[in-house]
Simulated scan of single mutants.
Amino acid sequence: MTLQQRARSSTGEHERRTMVSYPYDPEVDMVVSYAPPLDLTDIAAARELLAQATAGLPPFQPEAGVELTHLDASGAGDNPPVDLYMLRPSGGPTGQGRPALLWFHGGGFVLGDARESLPFLDAAVRLTGAIGISVQYSLAPEATFPAPIEEGLAALNWIVAHAEQLGVDPERIAVGGQSAGGAHAAGLALRLRDEGGPKIVFQLLDIPVTDDRLITQSAVEYTDGLVWNTKNAQLSWRAYLGDTGEPVSPYAAPARAEDLSGLPPAFITVNQFDPLRDEGIEYARRLAHAKVPAELHLYAGTFHGSSGIALAAEVSRRQNSDLVAALGRALAATVPVKDERN
Protein backbone atom coordinates (compact mmCIF):
# COMPACT_ATOMS: atom_id res chain seq x y z
CA MET A 1 0.00 0.00 0.00
CA THR A 2 1.37 3.43 -0.95
CA LEU A 3 1.34 6.47 1.31
CA GLN A 4 -1.37 7.88 -0.96
CA GLN A 5 -3.59 4.85 -0.25
CA ARG A 6 -2.82 4.95 3.46
CA ALA A 7 -3.87 8.59 3.69
CA ARG A 8 -7.12 7.87 1.85
CA SER A 9 -7.98 4.91 4.04
CA SER A 10 -7.19 6.73 7.29
CA THR A 11 -8.86 10.05 6.54
CA GLY A 12 -11.61 8.96 4.13
CA GLU A 13 -12.09 9.89 0.50
CA HIS A 14 -11.89 13.62 0.09
CA GLU A 15 -12.08 16.21 -2.61
CA ARG A 16 -8.96 17.13 -4.47
CA ARG A 17 -7.25 19.85 -2.51
CA THR A 18 -7.08 23.32 -3.99
CA MET A 19 -3.50 24.40 -4.46
CA VAL A 20 -1.25 26.45 -6.68
CA SER A 21 -0.73 24.52 -9.90
CA TYR A 22 2.79 23.41 -10.73
CA PRO A 23 3.76 21.50 -13.88
CA TYR A 24 4.31 18.23 -12.03
CA ASP A 25 5.48 15.13 -13.82
CA PRO A 26 2.28 13.49 -15.18
CA GLU A 27 2.75 10.32 -13.11
CA VAL A 28 3.46 12.35 -9.98
CA ASP A 29 0.43 14.53 -10.70
CA MET A 30 -1.86 11.49 -10.47
CA VAL A 31 -1.27 11.35 -6.71
CA VAL A 32 -0.18 14.88 -5.95
CA SER A 33 -3.52 16.25 -4.74
CA TYR A 34 -4.15 13.23 -2.53
CA ALA A 35 -0.82 13.39 -0.72
CA PRO A 36 -1.42 13.81 3.02
CA PRO A 37 -1.34 17.39 4.31
CA LEU A 38 1.29 18.20 6.89
CA ASP A 39 1.14 21.06 9.37
CA LEU A 40 3.84 21.40 12.03
CA THR A 41 1.97 24.11 13.93
CA ASP A 42 0.92 21.25 16.22
CA ILE A 43 3.72 18.67 16.17
CA ALA A 44 1.82 16.20 18.34
CA ALA A 45 -1.13 16.30 15.94
CA ALA A 46 1.19 15.83 12.97
CA ARG A 47 2.70 12.77 14.61
CA GLU A 48 -0.76 11.38 15.30
CA LEU A 49 -1.80 11.92 11.67
CA LEU A 50 1.21 9.95 10.45
CA ALA A 51 0.55 7.22 13.02
CA GLN A 52 -3.03 6.90 11.78
CA ALA A 53 -1.86 6.76 8.17
CA THR A 54 0.39 3.78 8.90
CA ALA A 55 -1.75 2.02 11.51
CA GLY A 56 -2.48 -1.59 10.73
CA LEU A 57 0.28 -2.00 8.18
CA PRO A 58 2.31 -5.19 8.55
CA PRO A 59 5.82 -4.77 9.96
CA PHE A 60 8.61 -4.45 7.46
CA GLN A 61 10.10 -7.71 6.23
CA PRO A 62 13.28 -7.64 4.11
CA GLU A 63 13.41 -9.30 0.73
CA ALA A 64 14.90 -12.76 0.38
CA GLY A 65 18.67 -12.69 0.82
CA VAL A 66 18.64 -9.83 3.32
CA GLU A 67 18.39 -10.10 7.10
CA LEU A 68 17.27 -7.46 9.61
CA THR A 69 18.76 -7.05 13.08
CA HIS A 70 17.80 -4.58 15.81
CA LEU A 71 20.95 -3.44 17.62
CA ASP A 72 21.47 -1.64 20.90
CA ALA A 73 24.54 0.52 20.36
CA SER A 74 25.16 1.09 24.06
CA GLY A 75 27.15 4.24 24.63
CA ALA A 76 30.68 4.09 25.96
CA GLY A 77 31.65 6.74 28.47
CA ASP A 78 29.59 9.84 27.80
CA ASN A 79 28.25 8.51 24.49
CA PRO A 80 24.44 8.12 24.46
CA PRO A 81 22.91 4.71 23.74
CA VAL A 82 21.36 4.50 20.27
CA ASP A 83 18.98 2.02 18.67
CA LEU A 84 20.11 0.85 15.24
CA TYR A 85 18.37 -1.23 12.58
CA MET A 86 20.86 -3.16 10.47
CA LEU A 87 20.15 -4.77 7.11
CA ARG A 88 22.83 -7.03 5.66
CA PRO A 89 23.12 -9.75 3.05
CA SER A 90 22.20 -13.11 4.56
CA GLY A 91 24.88 -15.63 5.37
CA GLY A 92 27.14 -13.51 7.56
CA PRO A 93 30.52 -11.98 6.72
CA THR A 94 32.98 -13.89 4.59
CA GLY A 95 36.56 -12.70 4.34
CA GLN A 96 36.95 -8.93 4.36
CA GLY A 97 34.15 -6.90 5.95
CA ARG A 98 31.48 -5.29 3.83
CA PRO A 99 31.12 -1.55 3.25
CA ALA A 100 28.34 0.12 5.21
CA LEU A 101 25.95 3.07 5.01
CA LEU A 102 24.94 4.83 8.24
CA TRP A 103 21.54 6.39 7.42
CA PHE A 104 19.41 9.13 9.03
CA HIS A 105 15.68 9.17 8.23
CA GLY A 106 13.74 12.27 7.23
CA GLY A 107 10.90 14.04 9.04
CA GLY A 108 11.73 17.70 9.48
CA PHE A 109 13.69 17.03 12.70
CA VAL A 110 10.41 16.33 14.53
CA LEU A 111 8.81 13.33 12.79
CA GLY A 112 9.74 9.90 11.57
CA ASP A 113 11.31 6.66 12.66
CA ALA A 114 14.40 4.72 11.68
CA ARG A 115 12.26 1.81 10.46
CA GLU A 116 10.57 3.81 7.71
CA SER A 117 13.89 3.94 5.85
CA LEU A 118 14.24 0.16 5.80
CA PRO A 119 12.60 -0.42 2.37
CA PHE A 120 15.12 1.95 0.75
CA LEU A 121 18.02 0.39 2.64
CA ASP A 122 16.77 -3.08 1.71
CA ALA A 123 17.10 -2.18 -1.98
CA ALA A 124 20.52 -0.64 -1.35
CA VAL A 125 21.74 -3.78 0.42
CA ARG A 126 20.46 -6.12 -2.28
CA LEU A 127 21.90 -4.10 -5.14
CA THR A 128 25.26 -3.07 -3.65
CA GLY A 129 26.10 -5.85 -1.19
CA ALA A 130 26.72 -3.21 1.47
CA ILE A 131 25.34 -3.16 5.00
CA GLY A 132 22.65 -0.56 5.71
CA ILE A 133 22.23 0.81 9.22
CA SER A 134 19.36 3.16 10.12
CA VAL A 135 19.77 5.39 13.20
CA GLN A 136 16.93 5.87 15.68
CA TYR A 137 17.90 9.41 16.62
CA SER A 138 16.01 11.62 19.07
CA LEU A 139 13.42 14.04 17.72
CA ALA A 140 12.85 17.72 18.42
CA PRO A 141 11.50 19.60 20.25
CA GLU A 142 12.05 17.04 23.03
CA ALA A 143 15.70 16.75 21.96
CA THR A 144 17.30 19.74 20.28
CA PHE A 145 20.67 20.16 18.55
CA PRO A 146 23.21 18.64 19.04
CA ALA A 147 21.43 15.48 20.26
CA PRO A 148 21.03 13.77 16.84
CA ILE A 149 24.63 14.54 15.87
CA GLU A 150 25.89 13.17 19.18
CA GLU A 151 23.81 10.04 18.65
CA GLY A 152 25.05 9.67 15.08
CA LEU A 153 28.64 9.98 16.25
CA ALA A 154 28.02 7.46 19.04
CA ALA A 155 26.51 5.06 16.50
CA LEU A 156 29.47 5.46 14.16
CA ASN A 157 31.98 4.93 16.97
CA TRP A 158 30.10 1.82 18.09
CA ILE A 159 29.99 0.39 14.56
CA VAL A 160 33.74 0.90 14.11
CA ALA A 161 34.46 -0.61 17.53
CA HIS A 162 32.34 -3.66 16.62
CA ALA A 163 33.31 -3.77 12.94
CA GLU A 164 34.64 -7.32 13.00
CA GLN A 165 31.61 -8.63 14.86
CA LEU A 166 29.23 -6.84 12.46
CA GLY A 167 31.19 -7.78 9.36
CA VAL A 168 31.78 -4.12 8.48
CA ASP A 169 34.87 -2.79 6.74
CA PRO A 170 35.72 0.26 8.90
CA GLU A 171 37.59 1.83 5.99
CA ARG A 172 34.46 1.90 3.79
CA ILE A 173 31.69 3.58 5.76
CA ALA A 174 29.40 6.17 4.18
CA VAL A 175 26.88 8.46 5.85
CA GLY A 176 23.60 9.53 4.32
CA GLY A 177 20.11 10.72 4.98
CA GLN A 178 16.93 12.10 3.52
CA SER A 179 15.70 15.66 4.11
CA ALA A 180 16.43 16.50 7.78
CA GLY A 181 18.42 13.28 7.88
CA GLY A 182 20.60 14.80 5.18
CA ALA A 183 21.34 17.69 7.53
CA HIS A 184 22.42 15.21 10.20
CA ALA A 185 24.61 13.26 7.78
CA ALA A 186 26.28 16.38 6.37
CA GLY A 187 26.66 17.87 9.86
CA LEU A 188 28.30 14.68 11.10
CA ALA A 189 30.69 14.72 8.14
CA LEU A 190 31.70 18.28 8.99
CA ARG A 191 32.22 17.46 12.66
CA LEU A 192 34.36 14.43 11.84
CA ARG A 193 36.48 16.53 9.51
CA ASP A 194 37.00 19.20 12.16
CA GLU A 195 37.36 17.10 15.30
CA GLY A 196 38.64 13.78 14.00
CA GLY A 197 37.18 10.35 14.53
CA PRO A 198 36.25 7.47 12.25
CA LYS A 199 36.83 8.18 8.60
CA ILE A 200 33.86 8.23 6.27
CA VAL A 201 34.27 7.87 2.54
CA PHE A 202 31.03 9.21 1.05
CA GLN A 203 27.94 11.37 1.69
CA LEU A 204 24.60 10.28 0.21
CA LEU A 205 22.32 13.30 0.63
CA ASP A 206 18.74 12.86 -0.59
CA ILE A 207 16.82 16.18 -0.78
CA PRO A 208 18.91 17.46 2.14
CA VAL A 209 18.05 20.24 4.56
CA THR A 210 21.12 22.46 4.83
CA ASP A 211 20.18 26.06 5.66
CA ASP A 212 18.06 27.42 8.52
CA ARG A 213 17.93 30.91 6.98
CA LEU A 214 15.43 29.92 4.25
CA ILE A 215 16.34 32.83 2.02
CA THR A 216 16.85 31.07 -1.31
CA GLN A 217 14.59 31.74 -4.28
CA SER A 218 12.83 28.37 -3.92
CA ALA A 219 12.21 28.93 -0.19
CA VAL A 220 10.72 32.34 -0.93
CA GLU A 221 8.59 31.23 -3.90
CA TYR A 222 7.35 27.75 -2.92
CA THR A 223 5.62 28.79 0.28
CA ASP A 224 2.63 26.51 -0.47
CA GLY A 225 4.56 23.45 -1.56
CA LEU A 226 2.93 20.06 -1.28
CA VAL A 227 3.72 18.08 1.91
CA TRP A 228 6.58 20.46 2.77
CA ASN A 229 6.42 24.24 2.64
CA THR A 230 8.34 27.20 3.94
CA LYS A 231 6.19 27.56 7.07
CA ASN A 232 6.83 23.93 8.02
CA ALA A 233 10.53 24.44 7.38
CA GLN A 234 10.57 27.46 9.69
CA LEU A 235 8.73 25.59 12.43
CA SER A 236 10.98 22.55 12.12
CA TRP A 237 14.14 24.63 12.45
CA ARG A 238 12.69 26.44 15.47
CA ALA A 239 11.95 23.11 17.13
CA TYR A 240 15.39 21.68 16.36
CA LEU A 241 17.53 24.68 17.28
CA GLY A 242 15.54 25.74 20.34
CA ASP A 243 15.70 29.26 21.71
CA THR A 244 19.27 29.44 22.95
CA GLY A 245 20.24 32.74 21.37
CA GLU A 246 23.52 31.15 20.33
CA PRO A 247 24.90 31.36 16.75
CA VAL A 248 23.68 28.47 14.61
CA SER A 249 26.32 25.75 14.34
CA PRO A 250 27.34 24.46 10.90
CA TYR A 251 26.93 20.97 12.36
CA ALA A 252 23.21 21.80 12.64
CA ALA A 253 22.89 23.80 9.41
CA PRO A 254 25.74 22.69 7.10
CA ALA A 255 25.26 25.66 4.76
CA ARG A 256 26.68 27.87 7.52
CA ALA A 257 30.08 26.19 7.28
CA GLU A 258 32.54 28.70 5.88
CA ASP A 259 34.84 26.03 4.44
CA LEU A 260 33.64 22.79 2.84
CA SER A 261 37.04 21.51 1.73
CA GLY A 262 38.35 18.21 2.96
CA LEU A 263 34.93 16.56 3.07
CA PRO A 264 34.11 13.16 1.55
CA PRO A 265 32.63 13.01 -1.96
CA ALA A 266 28.89 13.63 -2.13
CA PHE A 267 25.88 12.67 -4.21
CA ILE A 268 22.98 15.09 -3.78
CA THR A 269 19.41 14.96 -5.07
CA VAL A 270 16.88 17.79 -5.17
CA ASN A 271 13.22 18.00 -6.21
CA GLN A 272 12.12 20.72 -8.60
CA PHE A 273 9.10 22.21 -6.79
CA ASP A 274 10.56 22.09 -3.31
CA PRO A 275 11.29 25.07 -1.05
CA LEU A 276 14.56 23.32 -0.12
CA ARG A 277 15.67 22.84 -3.72
CA ASP A 278 18.06 25.77 -3.98
CA GLU A 279 19.84 25.15 -0.68
CA GLY A 280 20.66 21.64 -1.90
CA ILE A 281 21.90 23.01 -5.21
CA GLU A 282 23.98 25.64 -3.46
CA TYR A 283 25.52 23.09 -1.12
CA ALA A 284 26.55 20.97 -4.10
CA ARG A 285 27.98 24.05 -5.84
CA ARG A 286 30.03 24.99 -2.80
CA LEU A 287 31.32 21.44 -2.38
CA ALA A 288 32.44 21.45 -6.00
CA HIS A 289 34.10 24.85 -5.57
CA ALA A 290 35.94 23.44 -2.53
CA LYS A 291 37.30 20.66 -4.79
CA VAL A 292 35.15 18.00 -3.17
CA PRO A 293 33.82 15.52 -5.76
CA ALA A 294 30.11 16.33 -5.86
CA GLU A 295 27.34 15.06 -8.13
CA LEU A 296 23.96 16.78 -8.20
CA HIS A 297 20.68 15.47 -9.67
CA LEU A 298 17.53 17.59 -10.01
CA TYR A 299 14.36 15.64 -10.77
CA ALA A 300 11.88 17.47 -12.99
CA GLY A 301 8.27 17.80 -11.98
CA THR A 302 8.75 16.53 -8.43
CA PHE A 303 7.98 17.85 -4.94
CA HIS A 304 9.73 17.37 -1.60
CA GLY A 305 9.57 13.68 -0.72
CA SER A 306 7.73 12.68 -3.87
CA SER A 307 10.04 9.71 -4.38
CA GLY A 308 8.53 8.14 -1.27
CA ILE A 309 4.90 9.02 -2.08
CA ALA A 310 4.52 8.70 -5.85
CA LEU A 311 6.34 5.39 -5.77
CA ALA A 312 4.96 4.17 -9.09
CA ALA A 313 6.18 7.22 -11.00
CA GLU A 314 9.16 6.55 -13.25
CA VAL A 315 10.89 9.71 -11.99
CA SER A 316 10.55 8.44 -8.39
CA ARG A 317 11.98 5.05 -9.30
CA ARG A 318 14.83 6.80 -11.09
CA GLN A 319 15.62 9.03 -8.10
CA ASN A 320 15.79 6.06 -5.75
CA SER A 321 17.79 3.92 -8.18
CA ASP A 322 20.22 6.78 -8.79
CA LEU A 323 20.89 7.02 -5.06
CA VAL A 324 21.56 3.29 -4.80
CA ALA A 325 23.76 3.29 -7.90
CA ALA A 326 25.82 6.22 -6.58
CA LEU A 327 26.29 4.42 -3.28
CA GLY A 328 27.40 1.28 -5.07
CA ARG A 329 29.96 3.15 -7.14
CA ALA A 330 31.33 4.98 -4.12
CA LEU A 331 31.69 1.93 -1.91
CA ALA A 332 33.08 -0.30 -4.64
CA ALA A 333 36.09 1.91 -5.27
CA THR A 334 36.80 4.30 -2.42
CA VAL A 335 39.98 6.28 -2.02
CA PRO A 336 41.32 8.21 0.98
CA VAL A 337 39.74 11.66 1.37
CA LYS A 338 42.20 14.41 0.54
CA ASP A 339 41.97 17.48 2.72
CA GLU A 340 42.54 20.39 0.34
CA ARG A 341 43.07 22.74 3.30
CA ASN A 342 46.52 21.25 3.93
Rank of each mutant, 00 (worst) to 15 (best):
T2Y: 00
S9C: 10
G12Q: 08
E13P: 00
E13S: 12
E15M: 12
T18E: 10
S21F: 05
Y24E: 02
Y24P: 02
P26H: 04
E27Q: 15
V32T: 05
Y34I: 10
D39K: 14
L40V: 06
T41R: 13
A45K: 10
A45C: 03
R47A: 12
P59C: 00
F60E: 05
V66Y: 05
H70G: 04
D72G: 09
A76S: 14
D78W: 04
N79M: 11
P81T: 12
D83E: 06
D83S: 15
L84T: 04
Y85N: 11
T94Y: 01
R98E: 12
L101G: 05
F104I: 04
F104K: 02
H105W: 13
G107V: 04
L118T: 07
D122E: 07
A124M: 15
V125W: 02
G132L: 05
G132T: 03
G132Y: 13
I133Y: 09
S134H: 05
L139W: 06
E142R: 06
P146N: 05
P146L: 07
P146Q: 04
A147Q: 12
A155Q: 00
V160F: 01
L166Q: 01
D169W: 01
A174S: 08
V175C: 04
G177S: 10
S179V: 03
S179K: 03
A180Y: 03
G181S: 05
G181M: 12
G181Q: 10
G181F: 09
G182F: 01
A189K: 11
L190A: 00
L192M: 14
R193C: 09
E195H: 14
G196K: 03
G196F: 03
K199E: 10
V201P: 01
V201T: 11
F202S: 09
L205I: 10
V209S: 14
V209E: 13
R213F: 10
Q217T: 12
S218W: 15
V220C: 01
V220F: 12
D224E: 15
G225R: 12
V227E: 09
V227S: 06
T230L: 03
N232K: 02
A233Y: 00
L235N: 14
S236K: 06
W237P: 02
W237Y: 09
R238G: 12
L241H: 11
L241S: 13
L241D: 12
V248M: 01
Y251D: 09
A255Y: 01
D259R: 14
L260K: 02
S261W: 04
P265E: 03
F267P: 05
F267R: 06
I268T: 10
Q272F: 03
P275D: 09
R277H: 12
E279Q: 13
Y283I: 03
R286S: 09
L287N: 11
A290E: 07
K291Y: 08
V292R: 09
P293Y: 07
P293G: 07
H297I: 13
H297F: 09
H297N: 03
Y299M: 11
H304Q: 13
I309C: 02
I309R: 09
L311V: 13
V315S: 06
V315C: 07
R317T: 01
R318L: 10
Q319W: 02
N320G: 12
L323V: 11
V324N: 05
A326Q: 08
L327A: 08
R329A: 13
P336L: 03
R341S: 14
R341H: 01
